[in-house]
Simulated scan of single mutants.
Amino acid sequence: MTSPESGPTALVTVAHGTRNLAGNEIARLVAAAAAVRLGWPARASFVELSEPLFADVMVEAEGPTIVVPLLLSTGFHMRTDLPEAVEKASVPVVLGAPLGPDPLLAEAQVARLLEAGAVAGQRVVLVAAGSTDEAATRDQLAAVALLSRAWNGPVELATLSGHGSRPADVVRPGDAVSPYLLSPGFFHDRIRRECPDAAVVAEVIGAHELVVDLVVARASALAS
């Protein structure tokens, strides 16, 4: 299914899911705000660890549906889990690309850095969860380039797992750390623990207005 047929369009966002309740609430806030902007019904869903599960939402879908993943890079979920779940739907479904990398996410990261007290010219380390998928690594490097442009300063990459250097090997005293994460939870807690020398560790990207802008733009493009 490549485009929805006539009828009301619904938005479904799909995040990874976390045992952190506040983390899952980020996805719900983004979906709700996008729904108001689009004038569509919307529902937040999760790959795992929280309900409703995306696979169940696809089975329950009752009309044309646009899916905007709240995932920041390509990986197993994008390649396998989400397409397999979409196949279970009995209605037309359009599945979008991962949310990142994107210039709007980089702008939101800059806002979080400034809120945390980072200053112009300060060296920044973007810390991602990491992956063994080469496409995810390319996405993370693209996110670094976008953040460097938006920050107008040096940005390096560190990852908590998979390919890439670990924060302990990249973060220097006085650096600012920008978590490449949408929601708080296990990985954000690890970043705080593993970056003791950082002068600033920003909050996650979260339900920033620019994230809502991006979801609305992606959904509108998929529906056209």
Results as ranks from 00 to 15, higher is better:
A31W: 04
A32G: 12
A32K: 13
A32Y: 02
A35I: 12
V36P: 05
R37I: 05
L38K: 03
G39L: 00
W40Q: 03
W40N: 03
R43Y: 13
R43N: 13
S45R: 10
F46S: 03
F46M: 10
V47T: 11
L53V: 10
D56Q: 10
V57Y: 00
V59T: 07
V59C: 01
V59Y: 03
E60N: 02
A61C: 13
E62V: 11
G63Q: 04
P64F: 01
V67P: 06
V67Y: 04
V68C: 08
V68Q: 08
P69F: 10
L71D: 08
L71R: 07
L72M: 08
L72N: 03
R79P: 08
D81P: 12
P83C: 00
E84C: 05
E84D: 12
A85R: 00
V86K: 04
V86L: 06
E87W: 00
E87G: 03
K88M: 13
V91M: 02
P92N: 01
P92C: 03
V94C: 02
V94Q: 00
L95A: 03
G100E: 01
P103S: 09
A106R: 07
E107M: 07
A108Q: 10
A108G: 09
Q109R: 15
V110S: 09
A111C: 03
R112V: 09
L113E: 03
E115N: 13
E115G: 10
A120H: 10
A120G: 10
R123T: 04
V124C: 01
A128N: 02
A128R: 00
S131D: 04
T132A: 15
T132M: 14
T132Y: 14
T132N: 15
T137N: 13
T137I: 14
Q140R: 14
Q140W: 12
Q140F: 15
L141V: 14
L147F: 01
A150W: 12
W151E: 11
G153C: 12
P154S: 15
E156G: 11
E156Y: 07
L157K: 09
L157S: 01
A158E: 02
L160Q: 07
L160F: 06
H163C: 03
A168I: 09
A168R: 14
V170D: 05
V171P: 14
V171G: 10
V171A: 09
R172M: 12
P173I: 04
G174V: 13
D175R: 13
